[in-house]
């Protein structure tokens, strides 16, 4: 199954969740902010939000800034 994460296509396994994807790309879910198909996704839902073919994800994080 293919989703688009931060503008690039990415293969994920069937039934994968947002949390699975975050871990798969080497990130810690507690530091990742997610927009799932244009909607801000609450952190507590990362583990239950299932990905489906063609989903668009934006993975965002806090960075240094004023």
């Amino acid at each position: 199954m293919r989703v688009v994460a931060n503008g690039k296509p990415r293969e994920v396994g069937p039934g994968a969740t947002v949390e699975d994807l975050i871990r798969f790309v080497g990130l810690d879910p507690q530091y990742v902010i997610v927009e799932h198909n244009g909607e801000a996704l609450e952190r507590k839902r990362y583990g239950e939000a299932r990905l489906t073919e063609g989903d668009r994800l934006e993975l965002v994080r806090a960075v240094a800034g004023g």
Partner: peptide, 29 residues
Amino acid sequence: VTVALRRVDLEATGGPDILEFIDPDRYLL
């Protein structure tokens, strides 16, 4: 303490996160 938000570079996800260095009990983020 202010921070910005940016898209993660998925090709370079190693390294510590800035939030590991800002104690949320001490500072309002």
